[in-house]
Amino acid sequence: MKGGKAVDNKRSKRRGWFSVTRRRDLKGLLFMLPWTLGFGLFFASPLYQSVIFSLNKITITARGRRMAYVGLQNYYDIFQKDIYFVERLRAFFTNTLLSLPVILVFSLLIAMLINQKIRGKGLFRAIFFLPIIVVSGPMLNMLIQEGATTIPLIEQYGIYDALLNLPYFLQEPINYLFSQLIMVLWYSGVPILIFLAGLQKIDTSLNEAALIDGASSWVVFWKITLPSLRNMVLINAIYTMVFLATSEINEVIALIRSNMLAPDRGYGIASAMAWSYSLGIALAIVLIYLLIGREKKPELHKIAVYRKKGGARHAR
C-alpha cells in the first residue's frame, strides 16, 4: 500500500494539479458534502449564534425575538447573582472528579475479569453490557426516586458515621458516590466494552515472556497490561467525561433548560450558562489529556527490549 502511495505522489507531481489522482481526490469532497453541510448548518452557525445570544439580552415579543447587546452582563449575572448555577457547577465537577476514577477502575476490573477463561462468559458479558441498553434519563430518575440505585447494605455499615470525620468538602461527594454507587457502575458499560477489546489485542507472547522471566502477574499488570491500555484509558476517560456531562439527570443541564424557557431569563442567560459549562468541560478534557496523555516513546522502547530479552530466553 505504501509503495502505491509513493507512486501516486510522483505521478501527481509530474502531471500537476489536474492529474488523475488529484481529480479523484477532489471527488472525495463529494463524499464529505453531507457532513460539511451539516457542520455549517447544525454546528458552526448555531455555535456562532449562541455566542451572540450569550452577549445579548433576548426578549420574545409578539413580533419575534428582540436582542439588546449587554456585553458580558449575562456572564456576570450567572456567576454573581444566580443562586443555583455556581453551586450546581461546583457539585457537578466535584462529583465527576470522584466518580470518573471509580468508573475507570471498575470498568478495567470487570473487563479483566470477563477476559479470564471462565464458564458462563456470555452470561456475564450480557449482564455487564446491559446498562448500555437500558440507561436513560427518565428510567434512572424513576429508580433514584425509589432509592433502588443504592445498596441497602451500605447504609447499614456505618459508612455515614465514618463520613462525619472527613472535611466537609469531601463529605458530600463521597456520600454521593456511595448513595449512587450502582448508577456510577452502570455508567461503565461502554468503557468495559472498550477495555475488553483492548485487552484482547494485547500480544499474549509479551505476557508469557514476562512470566517466564519470573515476573509475577502483579508486575505484569503494571508493566505490560496497563501501559498497553494507555490509549484505551484516555479514550474511556474522555468518553466518560462527555457522557457524564451530557447525562440527562445532570442538574446543570436541567437548570440551563429551565432558564431557557423561563420568561424573565431567556435565551441569553441560558446561552451564557451553556458556554460557561462547556468551557469548564473542555478544560477538564484538556486536563485529562495532559494527565493520561499519549504513550511516551521511551516506555515503548523499554517494552520492546523486555520482549526481546524474554523472547531470546524463551527460544533457548
Partner: peptide
Amino acid sequence: VTFILPPYVLMVPKYTM
C-alpha cells in the same frame, strides 16, 4: 470538536432555528 463540545451550547440557537 463536534464530539467534545456539549450539545447544550447549540440547544438554544437550534431551537430558534
